[in-house]
Structures are given as structure tokens and as C-alpha cells.
Design a protein around this nucleic acid. Structure first.
Ligand SMILES: [Zn+2]
Ligand SMILES: [Zn+2]
Ligand SMILES: [Zn+2]
Ligand SMILES: [Zn+2]
Lengths: 155, 155
DNA sequence: ATACAATTGAGAACAATTCTCAATTATGCC
DNA sequence: GGCATAATTGAGAATTGTTCTCAATTGTAT
């Protein structure tokens, strides 16, 4: 039976149900793992975290669940240049709202920043509009990331 | 012996030599493949293109060479959400200069755009500066991409 | 409680990329 | 031009992250 550890069960469950899907312990475990720390976890890391509370969970289920939640907009999937996908909680209480990332290419530390976000958002909105018109695209998302070395890694 | 097909051999060769590396037919073939079309090729596509002029080339060499050129800043490596890396000629005659991408998530068409680039560049520069100060990062690059559906794929 | 479809875990399969290693080759020096 | 030497290569094996397959289990509507 579900444990409702860290995420808001009412909200998440309602959403899952809303898409005609079932509530299962595996899905709770994944939501808990992601919402617990608000970090940017790889599938493997979600697997380890979820296994702690629900030892029978399988890695394939982790991937399937993350894919499902991403499709529902409950989770953001992104990439930071190594070749593992990362996931973060995107929606509901505990989520961080739209933001961009600052990534250390050495230790893979990821900083969520909100500085300049208003200015950025405004420019991106205008750019999006202009590109949509000029190139006939229906634009859905964007990704903006800065790469560099964090203080520790810069020596 | 090198064929100097499409890229500027003087420029590229000087650069490779400058890093203490050797000029080889395989490296020429990769440069030719990339500079020929100015497109955003996967390793497999570079392999096919390079094989046409130099049939003995191996896929491992393609990967090694692309990695090397990326390290030298002669090539940009990036990702568009499927899980193949893409490469484009970044430097020397025929290169396109710094730009951002508009990506169709259905057919993977990639548009290089330069519209708004000045405004973008200016904001990104300021953001970079602010982030570097606030979070103690030494920032090297950024990536900005818009994702959506191109005219054809939007039906 | 029952029936049915959705979901699951385990492991096999897959695809992109990297590694290993012996054979080849570009380069600097004579 | 040859020679020596270390860099580079091709082929295939190995690795890694992710997806697929399938029989067994489980959530949900009735
Ligand atoms: Zn770091
Ligand atoms: Zn984040
Ligand atoms: Zn398209
Ligand atoms: Zn481009």
C-alpha cells in the first residue's frame, strides 16, 4: 500500500487518475524519490532512492514511470552533456517552477537559478514568437543551460 | 594522401598541427564530410559521408576524430533530444559562427537561426556574468534551443 | 468477490559509444 | 630518399544507458 512520503498525494494521485492511469506503489515510490530532495536525479539514482522504501521495484519500472510522468508534465527530463538523462519534479507542491540550469562539466553539480529569469523569460517569449512566425514552427519548449566549472572544480 | 575537398586545408591543417597532432586522410575525410554541407550530422552520417571518399575509414575513428576536433573547438557537439550526438563545423572558413537551434521533435529538422541573436547574446552575456559572480562558476559555454514542430510535421 | 486490463519485475535485447590491440603510417632527423 | 618512433588506425569486442518481452501480479470498476 502507498506511503505518501514526501509528495502531495492528493495532488499527484488526482493527476495520475485524471489521465486514466492507476495508482501503484511503484509510482508512489518514484514520486517520493524525486520530490524528497528536489534534485536532478538520473534513472539509476531514482532507482536507488525508490528501492530504499520499496525494495522490489525494478529498473524498467523506473524508466517507464519517469517516461509516463514526463509525458504528463509532472516531471522534467533533461540532459547535461554526460549521457544520462536527468529528471526533476516539475509540478505540484514542492516543484520549483520553470527555471534554467548552471552545470559543472567536471562534477556535474547542477544549480537551479532564478536570477535574471524574468528578463530571460521575456526575451525567450519574444524570440519564440519571432521564430514561430519566420520558420513556421509550433514551438513547445526551450532549453537554456550554462556550462562551466564550479568553484571547487576550478581548483 | 589528403584530398582537401571542401574545407580550407591550410586553416584546418595548421590548427591540427598547432595542437601537435598529425594530418591524416581520416581527419581530412571527417572535415570534408562536415564542411561539405554545413549540416548537423550524427556520427553515423559523418561515417557514411566520409566513407564515400575514403572507404577504409572505421567508425571508431570517426568518433575519435570528432571528439578530438570538439576538444580543439573546431567542431560543436550537441544533442537534440533523441539519443544521438550531432556535430557541426564550428571554426574556419565555411563555419557559421555562434548560433542557436530550432529543433523539430518529430522529424529532427534543425534550423540555425540568427534572428534576435544580438539581443540574445547581450542578455546571455549579462546573465553569464551575474551567475559567475553569484555562484562562483567559471562559465565556458551555453546552449539555447527551442523545440517544437516544423510546418510539415504540424500537419 | 469477480473479471479484466493495466502494471510489474526480470532478464534479454538494443543502440550509441568507447575500448583493446596489433598493424599501419605521418613526421622529424639523417 | 630511407629510418626510427610515436601517433593513429580499423576491426571487433566490450560497455553503458535505455527499451522491449512476457508471464505473473495487482488496481479498479462492477
Ligand atoms: Zn564541479
Ligand atoms: Zn532544475
Ligand atoms: Zn518536422
Ligand atoms: Zn547549427
Amino acid at each position: 500500500m502507498p506511503q505518501h512520503k514526501n509528495h502531495n498525494p492528493a495532488c499527484c494521485c488526482r493527476k495520475i487518475r485524471g489521465f486514466g492511469r492507476r495508482i501503484t506503489p511503484a509510482r508512489h515510490a518514484v514520486l517520493d524519490a524525486l520530490s524528497a530532495r528536489g534534485e536532478h536525479l538520473t534513472a539509476e539514482e531514482v532507482f536507488k532512492a525508490a528501492s530504499r522504501h520499496y525494495p522490489d521495484i525494478g529498473l524498467a519500472t523506473i524508466y517507464r514511470t519517469l517516461e509516463l510522468f514526463t509525458k504528463f508534465g509532472m516531471v522534467n527530463k533533461f540532459d547535461t552533456g554526460d549521457d544520462k538523462a536527468r529528471y526533476e519534479f516539475a509540478d505540484g507542491p514542492g516543484a520549483k517552477g520553470h527555471h534554467h540550469h548552471l552545470v559543472c562539466t567536471s562534477c556535474r553539480r547542477i544549480v537551479d537559478y532564478n536570477d535574471f529569469i524574468n528578463e530571460e523569460t521575456e526575451l525567450l517569449r519574444r524570440t519564440e514568437e519571432g521564430l514561430a512566425n519566420k520558420y513556421g514552427f509550433k514551438i513547445n519548449t526551450h532549453i537554456l543551460q550554462f556550462y562551466g566549472l564550479c568553484k571547487d572544480c576550478a581548483k
